[in-house]
Design a protein around this nucleic acid. Structure first.
Lengths: 131, 131
DNA sequence: CCAATACATGAACATAGGCTCAGGTATTTG
DNA sequence: CAAATACCTGAGCCTATGTTCATGTATTGG
């Protein structure tokens, strides 16, 4: 196990240097004077984009099916009760986020989860929502 | 222009059970005939709603700051370079998802992460994106 | 009490995203 | 080849959402 949670945020060098005048409450920092830098904007955008892929019921249900076994597109569509077009669009998003992989067999395309990360996420969120 | 969108068209609730064999490729199920049911729609919506809260750069940067220590609202606003109003709106979303907690001290409100779940998620996603 | 600070909230505007529709590509079949 | 199947994709419609702006509430200070 040993999930290493590096308590240090990773990216420095982001000085908010806008010409904005400063507030007063800045003197009340409860933490030490150590620079606590936020996540950089570009990386926060990449991460938000990733979470956006998970922020859709249809895609989550696709993932839940693929967690059980692999399926071809039309089976996924039928089981979710949505059009093949919609499924195909959503699978494209999942592919883009490297959440699923596929293999072709004749004219069918079988999709499966890409790796275990998504299952970990799934479990953690279920745990959070169950509380 | 008005198409047949009479009802909500959001949740068809099409209960395709065993009788309705529409597609042809259904016979290629790789799994056994066991019912592989997808995540139920209501739960998938709750989960999507939760991921939606994480699907925003500003909120992720707020979380990254709060992972280091607690902060009052105007400090968060200053460090991210966004308005206090925007921060307040986003903190509301984070509160709703039980991702942050707050304590009042005078006229200031100090926010901190609610529990460890978000840090786990954060780590898993960083790992996924780093590959 | 009145002004200022710190934060919250509703409305409005601009953008992003999911679905349907209408094709398009690739593979199998007659 | 031509039709059918399985899947992909661009365009457009409609809804959801993040921000700003203006205002409201609570606490501190003169």
């Amino acid at each position: 196990m040993a999930r290493q949670t590096s308590s240090r945020t990773v990216l420095p060098t982001r000085r908010v240097s806008s010409g904005e005048a400063e507030a007063v409450c800045s003197e009340h920092h409860s933490g030490s004077g150590a620079a606590v830098e936020p996540l950089e904007l570009p990386e926060s955008q990449r991460m938000a984009e990733f979470f956006s892929v998970l922020a859709d019921p249809t895609r989550l249900r696709l993932i839940s099916l693929l967690a059980g076994s692999e399926f071809c597109v039309c089976d996924l569509a039928e089981r979710l009760g949505v059009s093949e077009s919609a499924v195909s669009h959503q699978l494209r998003a999942l592919r883009g986020a490297r959440l699923v992989r596929y293999r072709k067999e004749g004219r069918q395309v079988f999709y499966q989860l890409h790796d275990h990360h998504i299952v970990d996420l799934y479990g953690t969120v279920r745990e959070h929502l169950a509380e």
